[in-house]
Design a protein around this nucleic acid. Structure first.
Length: 455
RNA sequence: GUGAUUGUAGCUCAGUAGGUUAGAGCGCUGGAUUGUGGUUCCAGAGGUCGCGGGUUCGAGCCCCGUCUUUCACCCCA
């Protein structure tokens, strides 16, 4: 058989032990904060029924779903007529019934409906799992990536939004990434469209406004005209797009601009409540009310969150919002929820670019024993057992090879301490502990080693 | 999905106008140093030039296809 060069599918990646240490640091940090706010873990299958997924992410999203072929000889059950049509979309529904999940929110909605009688509402759940999108890969964009979601359903309180901002702030402070936390409210956007007399064009308006940073005001206006907005409405929109000042000033202006829009005022009131509450806390990162923030309008109905890293050019690393009726499509009405999703892979890229990882990863081996032979093994193994029992990650080289090779092994593995026990040490009842970073060595008794490694 | 772009040693990259035996740095292996890694010195190993086809006396280099990479748009974490 011909030898084939191994490779992995487009947009996917392998992660080495060193990379996994870094990734687990991210996951552990995020998880720690989720738990601290009372979120509980769930997991859902990698694949869902296509009927669960299709139509939830818009037309674009449907195209990006990975579909799984049915088992068995499905073509024999397909009519010649259908095959002759060569209509991929139509054929797909006959030969594929399952797909890989596209995000964690829709599977969560499905979960809530399916398990509604077991769930204790308000239900706070977190979920850290991979999702798949048949997108064309580019920077910060993969076909398989992890999302870390925290959502709470069954409560309308703005307290949830306040806590989510605290959660975001806590996580990125811990990861040492400087971010700006952007907030907006879909109701405010609706109000703006309403006072412009363009309620039906809300999506076009917000999508265009969202590009302000990227393409500039002129191009935004061109796009608005392009989408059929009258010049008068565009003119009326200008002061809103360019709204400046601090959050309270922005809210005050909005309040007067939106005075004739009930929904708009509701949005302003919600935002005001969140901003007021947040003033009680000493947040590490900037919180900014940004009217040009649009995001997934597919299901968001209230607050919208988005987080951007200040020091790295990459898409948003975290985003979410409130949805009033996510579970409605699965038959459970009036369950409001709000959630946030951390993009672990982009956070990984940001941390790599800024090299913000802690020096020593707690998952790594802390102390390494050089192996000199049988007698030394017998002497060392009980010490290793004691260390491990005390919670110290420890290992011994499995063979009595050249010391140089063993030292290099420990060095390559970034192990901070090496214990050397040969004939001399066994006789004297002491051991040599080498600090691999400073190169310094000292003699210790076994008891002293245990105390040193566990402190 | 649209338009570009990339691929040569484990990694980062040279490779002249198409010419005989494809190079460097880092890494790797061994030695200097049989109880000391990370620094230094010496030596060595390592290549279907992404894959398939074509043009040519001759292709890493030119042409076509394909896969992959990166980027913009769309959209998004």
């Amino acid at each position: 058989m011909a030898i084939q060069k191994p490779y992995i599918p487009k947009g996917t990646r392998d992660f080495s032990p060193a990379e996994m240490l870094k990734r687990n640091y991210i996951f552990d940090t995020i998880k720690k904060h989720f738990v601290r706010f009372g979120y509980q873990p769930i997991e859902t299958p990698a694949m869902e029924n296509l009927s669960t997924l299709i139509g939830k992410y818009g037309e674009e999203g449907d195209k990006l779903l990975f579909k799984i072929l049915n088992s068995g000889d499905f073509l024999t059950k397909t009519s010649d007529e259908l095959l002759a049509q060569r209509n991929s979309q139509k054929l797909t529904t006959k030969i594929s019934e399952k797909g890989l999940r596209y995000d964690l929110t829709v599977p969560f909605a499905r979960y809530v409906v399916q398990h509604q009688n077991e769930i204790n509402f308000p239900f706070k759940r977190y979920q850290i799992q991979p999702v798949w999108r048949a997108d064309r890969p580019q920077k910060g964009r993969y076909r398989e990536f992890f999302q870390c979601d925290a959502d709470v359903v069954g409560t309308n309180s703005m307290l949830n939004e306040v806590e989510i901002v605290q959660l975001i702030d806590g996580i990125f402070s811990d990861l040492k990434i400087n971010v700006v936390i952007k907030l907006n409210n879909r109701k405010i956007l609706s109000g703006i469209a309403e006072i412009l007399g363009q309620a039906d064009k809300i999506i076009d308006i917000t999508v265009a406004m969202d590009k302000l940073d990227k393409i500039g005001l002129n191009n935004v206006n061109i796009e608005l005209i392009d989408k059929g907005l009258p010049q008068t409405a565009v003119d009326q929109l200008q002061p809103i797009i360019l709204l400046s000042g601090n959050n309270n000033e922005k809210l005050a202006s909005l309040k007067s601009v939106l005075s004739n829009s009930e929904i708009g005022l509701k949005g302003v009131a919600e935002m005001q409540e969140i901003i007021d509450y947040l003033q009680m806390f000493d947040l590490q990162n900037e919180v900014e009310l940004d009217l040009t923030l649009a995001r997934g309008l597919n299901y968001y109905t209230g607050t919208i969150f988005e987080v951007k890293a200040n020091d790295v050019q990459i898409g948003s690393i975290c985003g979410g919002g409130r949805y009033d009726d996510l579970t409605g499509i699965f038959g459970l009405k009036d369950v409001s929820g709000v959630g946030i999703s951390f993009g672990a892979d982009r956070i990984f890229d940001v941390l790599n670019e800024l090299d913000l990882y802690p020096k020593h990863q707690s998952e790594n081996t802390k102390v390494f024993f050089v192996n000199f032979g049988k007698a030394e093994e017998i002497f060392c193994l009980p010490i290793l057992a004691k260390l491990r029992k005390a919670g110290v990650n420890a290992e011994i080289y499995p063979e009595a090879t050249k010391m140089k090779k063993q030292m290099k092994f420990a060095n390559d593995k970034a192990i901070p301490f090496v214990v050397i026990i040969g004939e001399d040490e066994m006789q004297k009842g002491e051991l040599v502990l080498k600090n691999m970073e400073s190169g310094e060595q000292k003699f210790l008794s076994i008891e002293e080693l245990l105390i040193f490694m566990t402190k």
